[in-house]
Write a protein that binds this DNA or RNA. Structure first.
Length: 465
RNA sequence: GGCGGCAUAGCCAAGUGGUAAGGCAGAGGACUGCAAAUCCUUUACCCCCGGUUCAAAUCCGGGUGCCGCCUCCA
């Protein structure tokens, strides 16, 4: 498998540290509000990578943290006159709902909260202080970037340029303007924890370093996140972790491209964002997931109603293909494979191989999706009531297998209520008697309830929309 | 100003040396009582100008346009 590593700016062959286990850390949300589409992209993309690894037989330890202590959360808590915990609990719950809808929790994800690791953070910072890489100024502890070797190696920035291009206000406490806070002294009205430097709370960058170390070890296989986190967040994580451990922090750094709206980055601060909740009012979150996978993860992707409509229509095509196969399974019989059948099986396997190949090429989901469409097209065109059931089953299993890797096509048909079944019966009778007016009335009324009827050669099929 | 990325049909989007995957939308046709679904047919001077090569969307140089990071940000 090849993955594009931001550290080297190259596609590299992926070699895990352990033979059959992979550790992944993805920067998760700061829980001060509902997450938006931009936040969802890395979650969906790297969940898909995780799924692919699992498919290939690896055990995957996948960590997505919650940043539950931060200026913004504190601000919100003060504004609403409630506690930090109340705010973070609220948005963690909301996150879980969104995540469920996006199929992010089909496999176990480790979701640590920053506040559960305060002791580890303090120890981590103490270690840096002992090494002379961090210094305490009146309760604020800063990391001295001069002490990190190769500072800037991820984002390819050099210190001089950073200094001259810096828009940061000069903080007189800092030895170097680019030094960043590991521990922040508590102001009044702020939640705090006791520490060797007095009351305070951790800085942002330290959280991820500590949770990754505590849960996955000093060196992890993959660290991922949005490309806007490359600097300073990921750069600072590297600086802290590698200075303390004297080992590489992550072997592969993966970054996804930004979601745009009218070709401008979707961002909280820009105000041009759509929350997952907004989207789910209008579209299924599965469609959103499919949309996010429809382009290569490193490309920017423009979010629009138009794009979502296209995605929904495409997804429907896949569902129709899936439903047709399901339908055929009950209509066909198994028999010895003949030459034609063998050819079909080969064809189906070819689509699968192509899919896998695409995924192994730096997670090219867009290309992989094309293989799934081709598989569906093949089934639609070549498989029918006279086909060998064995072939139908193979097509269906393959479709399920591949769509499971992407985390789509997971909805299963529900069972219809008695009275609706009766109505469908009634309509069939009416059609038999050429009473098309009644038949159409029933069909229309069912459509209003979200049930679409299709008359096929072998009777009535239905689906929910 | 520094660093990085992108430009492929009406739209979305793969393809990184051998003359353009896939999807959406549109048009025509088949099937159908009508629909739906499905199938068939149909649409590309690969941003521009040079260069390398037998051969370039693909490599190199120069433009133009757009975007991201350098500040909280997925």
């Amino acid at each position: 498998m090849k993955l594009y590593n931001t550290l080297t700016r190259k596609k590299e062959e992926f070699l895990p540290i352990k033979k059959d286990e992979i550790s992944m850390y993805n920067c998760g949300p700061t829980v001060y509000d509902f997450i938006h589409v931009g936040n969802a992209r890395p979650l969906v993309v790297f969940d898909t990578l995780r799924r692919f690894f699992i498919y290939k037989g690896y055990d995957v330890k996948f960590v997505v943290n919650f940043t539950d202590v931060d200026d913004k959360i504190i601000e919100k808590a003060n504004k609403e006159n409630t506690t930090l915990k109340a705010i973070s609990e609220r948005y963690i719950d909301a996150f879980m709902e969104d995540a469920e809808g996006l199929n992010l929790y089909d496999y176990e994800t480790i979701n640590p909260r920053a506040t559960e690791f305060i002791n580890e953070m303090i120890k981590f910072i103490e270690g840096l202080v002992d090494k002379g890489a961090a210094y305490n100024v009146d309760g604020n502890v800063y990391f001295n970037i001069e002490s990190a070797k190769d500072y800037g190696k991820l984002s390819k920035k050099n210190l001089d340029e950073l200094r001259s291009g810096s828009r940061i206000e000069v903080n007189k406490e800092k030895k170097n303007p680019m030094d960043f806070a590991l521990w922040k002294k508590a102001k009044s009205e702020e939640p705090y924890w006791e520490s060797p430097w007095g009351k305070g709370r951790p800085g942002w960058h330290i959280e991820c370093s500590v949770m990754a170390k505590s849960l996955l070890g000093d060196t992890i296989d993959i660290h991922s996140g949005g490309e806007d986190l490359q600097f300073p967040h990921h750069e600072n994580e590297i600086a802290q972790s590698e200075t303390l451990a004297d080992k590489p922090f992550a072997n592969y750094w993966l970054h996804n491209g930004m979601i745009t709206v009218n070709n401008q980055k979707m961002a909280k601060s820009e105000g041009n964002f759509f929350t997952i909740k907004d989207i789910s009012d209008e579209y299924s979150l599965e469609a959103l997931r499919f949309f996010l996978l429809s382009a290569h993860y490193r490309s920017p992707i423009n979010f629009s109603r138009d794009a979502m409509e296209q995605t929904v229509n495409g997804l429907n095509r896949l569902y129709n293909g899936k439903n047709n196969l399901e339908y055929l399974i009950n209509k066909t019989r198994s028999r010895e494979l003949d030459e034609e059948d063998e050819k079909s099986l080969e064809k189906i396997n070819k689509y699968k191989e192509e899919f896998i190949k695409s995924m192994e090429d730096d997670l090219n989901t867009a290309d992989g999706i094309a293989s799934i469409f081709e598989l569906v097209k093949f089934a639609n065109t070549n498989l029918n009531e006279r086909s060998n059931k064995k072939v139908i089953i193979h097509a269906q299993n393959t479709l399920t297998e591949l769509s499971n890797i992407l985390g789509i096509l997971s909805k299963t048909e529900e069972i219809l209520e008695e009275e609706i079944l009766k109505l469908i019966e009634e309509r069939s009778e009416a059609r038999k008697n050429k009473d098309f007016q009644l038949a159409d009335e029933i069909r229309d009324s069912l459509q209003e309830q979200g049930i679409i009827l299709e008359d096929t050669q072998d009777g009535v099929k239905w689906k929910r929309v």
